[in-house]
């Protein structure tokens, strides 16, 4: 579904990584780890065509991102749910409308009960009418996950989704990701939360990839 072949990326200085390859087949579950600044967020941005590789090839749903028009990129993003590290909400719209935004912009704003169920599941029913700036970091992150999955995407990319939430909520969030994966969706979670990775391994067959020395290596059973 998403393929990176011999990819390099540089923001203008040195290359963050070079000759990196990664494949996210349907139904896979991956963790992406690495120290802060290693390029996890950058790698995820390559996966949803926010960035284009400086070398190598990125394919999203079989299409080379270099040849994709802005409209094609938009259509591809409707099939990819992304939990951004910095959440990215529309601050003037209430939480419920923010969560439903992927449906709204694709003309499918008939969510109704789905939206309520989803908000209940991430524990934000009470906050549905609040504006994003009024929410805590953890609440914003749960809302970001709800928004990422509301349009039942085929792939879920989550960038440090548990960065701001307590262990209990992290577990629930992980459970939702595992459930989505069981429904056949591919999941890629960037995190440095090793506890979360261990908890996940008990529930799902997950591959753990580590960004290290400009390369992606498969982490062993040492976790």
């Amino acid at each position: 579904m998403i393929e990176l072949q011999n990819v390099a990326y540089s923001y203008g200085g040195g290359e963050l990584f070079s000759d990196l390859s990664l494949s996210l087949p349907p139904g896979s579950f991956h963790f992406l780890t690495g120290p802060s600044g290693a390029g996890k967020t950058t790698l995820l941005k390559l996966c949803y065509a926010e960035l284009k590789p400086t070398a190598g090839r990125v394919e999203i749903f079989g299409e080379d991102v270099r040849g994709m028009s802005r409209d094609r990129v938009a259509l591809a993003r409707r099939r990819i749910g992304v939990v951004h590290q910095d959440c990215q909400f529309l601050d003037h719209l209430p939480l419920a409308e923010n969560v439903a935004l992927p449906l709204t912009v694709s003309g499918r704003s008939d969510a109704g009960t789905d939206l309520e169920d989803l908000l209940a599941w991430v524990g934000l029913s009470r906050q549905a009418n609040q504006l994003p700036p009024e929410l805590s970091g953890g609440e914003r992150q749960r809302a970001a996950l709800a928004r990422a999955v509301i349009s039942s995407p085929e792939i879920v990319l989550a960038d440090e989704p548990t960065g701001n939430i307590d262990w209990d909520m992290s577990q629930r969030l992980l459970a939702l990701l595992v459930e989505l994966n069981r429904m056949g969706k591919s999941v890629l979670v960037a995190t440095h939360d090793l506890q979360l990775i261990r908890a996940a391994k008990a529930q799902v067959q997950a591959r753990v990839l580590r960004l290290k020395g400009r390369q992606l290596v498969t982490a062993g059973a040492d976790l």
């Binding site: 409209d71 993003r77 409707r78 935004l101 694709s106």
Partner: peptide, 15 residues
Amino acid sequence: QVIRVLRLVGAQDTY
């Protein structure tokens, strides 16, 4: 910022 968020959730330019 609004435009960036809309793009991220899959809005096309005409929208």
